[in-house]
Each structure stands twice: as C-alpha cells, then as structure tokens.
C-alpha cells in the first residue's frame, strides 16, 4: 500500500513512520540520539533510515514524524543554509537556523509538515543549545528533549534524571549546577534507547549518536539496537 494514496473513502496525507529522537544540551556540548528504524503499521520499511543530519559544522537537525515530510523539510532547510553561506560568506549560527526553521514551518500553517524537529548545536556563547518544535513551528529552547514514538517513555525519565523533577535533594532551578558531562549524557542516551527498543515496537535496529563540541565539531557514532 502506498502511504499517500486513498485509504477507503478518505484521503490521508500523513503517515507516522515511528522512531525516536533525544537531544541533551551540556555546558559546552550537545548530544543527539536517534534510532534508524522507519516503519508503517506492523511493517518495517527499512532498518537504516537516519533521522538526524549534519547541517553546518555546528548544527544537527533530527526529525521524527512522517519520513517524506521530514526529508522534504530538511531539503528546504539545507537549501536555505547553503544560500545563506553563499550570500554572507559565513555559516549560519544555530540560533539563526532555529529561528529560520520556525518561520519555514509556520509558512505551511494550513498544510503543515507532519514533523517533530529538534535543532541542536553550539550557540554564540559556546554553550550547548537544543531547540524543539511542534509541527506548525512553535519553537522553544530547552535543556533536553525527547520526540517520537518513545517520547512518552523517554521524556519522563530525563525529566527526572536531568531535570531533577520531584527530587528532594536537587531543585529543578538548580539544574544548571548539575549539568551532565559528555560521557554521562552519552551513557544516558544509549541506556534510554536500549530501554525504548525493549518496550516501544517502533523504536529499534540502530542508534545514531551525534556529539557536537566547539573544538571537535560534529562526531557520529553508530550503535546497534534490538531488531525485533
């Protein structure tokens, strides 16, 4: 069955292809994890369809939702970023890219992309930045965010582990004083994705772990996840 064809008597323009993304901002780094499974119903379309991509030497965009819309949107963003670099002779900053994406999404307010994007990078002050969006372009800068089919499993866990919600010893306001180091952040991401692959049928196959630092640029690690 072709996803964008007529289902019964109603035309369905959107399909949720599943998968999850998770970004954590540290003091001077960001890590972005995403699984590589793409599915439709009980069917796996492919075990390797990366959701996160490098856009500049400083930014990564990770998107869940409808794969066709994700790719179409990413292509438009990449075109704008390339154009910006040619016009201004410099790379776009993560702040600029984040704002631009919000505008591009709102421009499709009444036939929006079915996407849940996260933009991650190092901001002008050298700090880790994570921006999250809803499908029509509502943007928010956050310290960490989980999106996709496992978001209901991942977000409460990182709210507890990194946001210190409902903790007696550390107040949520003191979060900045207890930011994870790079290794801690990476460990949490691998652990939660392994956990998500256990309980969410749409998350699995492979994990891509992007690390962005000011000195090291963007690094990508690939790890296996459960394939059942």
């Amino acid at each position: 069955m072709v996803p964008t064809e007529h289902h019964g008597d109603q035309w369905e323009p959107y399909v949720d292809n599943g998968g999850s993304t998770l970004a954590i901002a540290g003091e001077d780094f960001v890590v972005i994890g995403s699984d590589t499974r793409s599915s439709d119903g009980y069917n796996i379309n492919t075990r390797y369809d990366p959701k996160a991509f490098k856009f500049t030497n400083n930014t990564v965009l990770a998107t869940t939702g409808y794969r066709a819309d994700c790719k179409s949107m990413a292509k438009s963003v990449q075109a704008q970023i390339t154009k910006y670099a040619h016009d201004h002779g410099k790379e776009m900053s993560v702040e600029a890219m984040a704002q631009m994406l919000s505008i591009m999404m709102y421009q499709k307010r009444f036939f929006s992309y079915y996407v849940f994007p996260i933009v991650a990078g190092i901001d002008k002050e050298g700090k880790g930045a994570v921006y999250s969006y809803d499908p029509v372009g509502n943007m928010e800068r956050v310290g960490f965010r989980a999106f996709g089919s496992s978001s209901a499993l991942l977000q409460p866990f990182i709210d507890d582990q990194l946001g210190f919600k409902n903790r007696a010893d550390i107040k949520p306001e003191e979060r900045e004083l207890h930011l994870p180091d790079l290794q801690q952040a990476k460990n949490i991401i691998t652990d939660v994705f392994n956990g998500a692959a256990e309980r969410d049928i749409y998350t699995g196959d492979g994990l891509q772990l992007f690390t962005i630092t000011k000195e090291g640029g963007i690094e990508l690690e690939e790890l296996p996840l459960k394939r059942d």
Binding site: A168, D169, N187, D191, N194, E198, R227
Partner: peptide
C-alpha cells in the same frame, strides 16, 4: 532467545535523600 537485553552503561540508583 535472540533478543537479550543489553547491560546498562550507568547505575540509576537514587542517592539517599532523593525522595522527600
């Protein structure tokens, strides 16, 4: 049993005093 759980990287034990 082709789908055994992989071991965790970190311990998630709460330090005493985490729960009010």
């Amino acid at each position: 049993k082709p789908n055994q759980r992989v071991p965790k990287q970190t311990s998630y034990k709460y330090p005493p005093g985490s729960v009010s």
